[in-house]
Amino acid sequence: MADKITLEVARYSPEQDGEPRFDRYEVPLIENWMVLDALNYIKDQLDGTVTFRWSCRMGICGSCGMVVNGHERLTCETLLADYLPGPIRVEPLRHFPVMRDLVVDLSDFMEKLERVKPWIIRQPGAPEPSREFIQTPEQLAEYKQYSLCINCVLCYSACPVYGLDPHFIGPAASALSLRYNLDSRDQGAEQRLDVMAQHDGVWDCTVIGECSVVCPKHVDPSLAIQEYKISATKAWFKNLLMPGGGK
């Protein structure tokens, strides 16, 4: 096995550079080193100005998402050795403004996430529970898949529809929104449907499915969006047949 591998790292400072460039760095090819380990080696040993986000190094914080050789990956669980003989091209996530090098501005996603109300909603005036909510394993299984989302936004980077229309509510927000609808403790499905059934909600999705392919936690946002289309359609026909009624 080779003892070194080359990384081509996207470098960009919007205030100074006209356009992004790629800097090449040679790093030791150590068994079990991930792309993130290589980036940290570069930052510590070769070039302290390379900028990227990371935190947990174990695939749960969702901060080290980047595009590695054209594919969205969490760099903390992407082996260098899988890309032999190299070089490995590391770029920032697509469809978000680049703040610097590999760091993107997630404001748009954060605004969308808040809009879909990803928290447990109880009806106003609902009596305060006198004890904890009991939930069966079956009730947990209803939403568990969607609760595994770590907001790494690889799905937004992989979604061509979001790339074309930044108003699209997008995959992770849809999955997290459905996660609370499916929770037996929640009573906010109608409020969330008001957001998701809008023109900028789920309707732009053309079921390309890349969101579900790239998800490192095996969430299926594409399915969540189709579930929302079905819910919205049921509600639409119900309202057509019984205007204002049936609630």
């Binding site: 059934a197 809008q198 023109h199 909600g201 289309k229 509600a235 639409w236």
Partner: peptide, 13 residues
């Protein structure tokens, strides 16, 4: 709150 879209009709068809 913006209205729910009528996209449900073409989508269901």
């Amino acid at each position: 709150m913006a209205r729910r879209s009528a996209e449900s009709l073409p989508w269901s068809l």
